[in-house]
């Protein structure tokens, strides 16, 4: 049985549908990334799983129980979304105090000092929450979610507002949680984060799951591609005609070109020759299976 199982979840706020139909399963010892644009329904989905909101329709089980079940409280760690001043920490409480409080609620917590050190917060241990930087607040919030040694953690945008170093600290910790057998469910709108961390990616758009699978599954769908960057607005009809044999050239965003089809050395030569004729540099020319970004953009493109 998966650690977290969501089936046909729906949730509206007044006349706004936040989540229309979301199903997903998250396993122990795996990182499941819920990926989507802002407003796609990620936070609502995770908050329902974490027992912070109720669903209008569908079912959610966490470790076989209803998300609101008090028996889950010590088995599940939650990191709510930061920002908007509502991350759930007393503003005048110091880092060490908040962590000690949350640790004291559990019988077998992580050693606070080691956790603080691990997250690079040692120097901030006596600083009140409100005087921490945004990145420090995020890292403390993560520490609070895991200090009780949970079986399942829900992390809502765990790296939002972090600098590169903080982001890597967080990524490393998430990997270690996974190795330790924790089921990690995180939301992100960062493709590289999902690609980097996740065993399982669920792409949500407008409250609906548009794709799910391993990062490799999702990028395989994007097929063979040749990508390059060049000045925007090149006349692609001409290139497509020149390529022949079912290959097509497109410009999904200004200045970024994608040629799909079966990519051969000959075809690469055709593309570069076509660019040379126009006295245009083909930058960042790459071939191979698509990136998650390409898959993501293809899946969540606005129908225009």
């Amino acid at each position: 049985m998966p650690a977290v199982e969501v089936l046909g979840l729906a949730r509206r706020y007044g006349s706004v549908t936040a989540v229309a139909d979301v199903s997903l399963a998250a396993e122990a010892g795996q990182v499941t990334a819920v990926l989507g644009r802002n407003g796609a329904g990620k936070t609502t989905t995770v908050e329902i799983c974490a027992g912070l909101r109720t669903a209008d329709a569908g079912s959610v089980t966490v470790l076989g129980l209803h998300p609101g079940d008090p028996a889950l409280r010590h088995r599940v760690g939650v990191m709510p979304q930061g920002g908007s001043g509502a991350s759930g920490v007393y503003p005048s409480a110091r880092v060490g105090e908040v962590l000690a409080l949350h640790a004291a609620l559990h019988s077998d917590p992580l050693p606070a000092r080691a956790l603080v050190e691990r997250l690079g917060l040692t120097k901030a241990a006596d600083t009140p929450w409100r005087r921490l930087s945004g990145g420090e607040q995020q890292r403390l919030s993560l520490a609070l979610a895991i200090v009780g040694r949970p079986e399942v953690v829900f992390l809502d945008e765990p790296t939002a507002g972090l600098d590169v170093q903080g982001r890597h600290l967080t990524w490393e910790l998430i990997r270690d949680l996974k190795v330790a057998g924790v089921a990690v469910v995180l939301t992100t709108h960062l493709l590289d984060e999902a690609e980097e961390l996740a065993d399982h990616v669920v792409i949500i758009d407008a409250g609906i799951v548009v794709a799910a699978g391993t990062p490799r599954d999702l990028t395989a769908g994007a097929g063979d591609e040749l990508r390059f960057e060049a000045p925007a607005g090149l006349p692609l009809g001409d290139l497509t005609a020149r390529l022949g044999s079912g290959a097509t050239a497109a410009e999904p965003s200004p200045g970024r070109y994608v040629v799909t089809g079966s990519i051969t050395p000959d075809m690469i030569a055709t593309v570069t020759a076509w660019c040379a004729e126009r006295d245009v540099m083909a930058n960042r020319l790459t071939t191979g299976a698509g990136t998650l970004e390409a898959a993501f953009l293809a899946l969540t493109e606005d129908p225009t």
């Binding site: 559990h106 080691a114 490393e172 330790a180 924790v182």
Partner: peptide, 16 residues
């Protein structure tokens, strides 16, 4: 584990 010491494996209950 990268910095050793921290054992993140699930454990424990609510405290009394």
């Amino acid at each position: 584990m990268s910095t050793g010491s921290l054992d993140l494996s699930p454990a424990g209950h609510a405290s009394p």
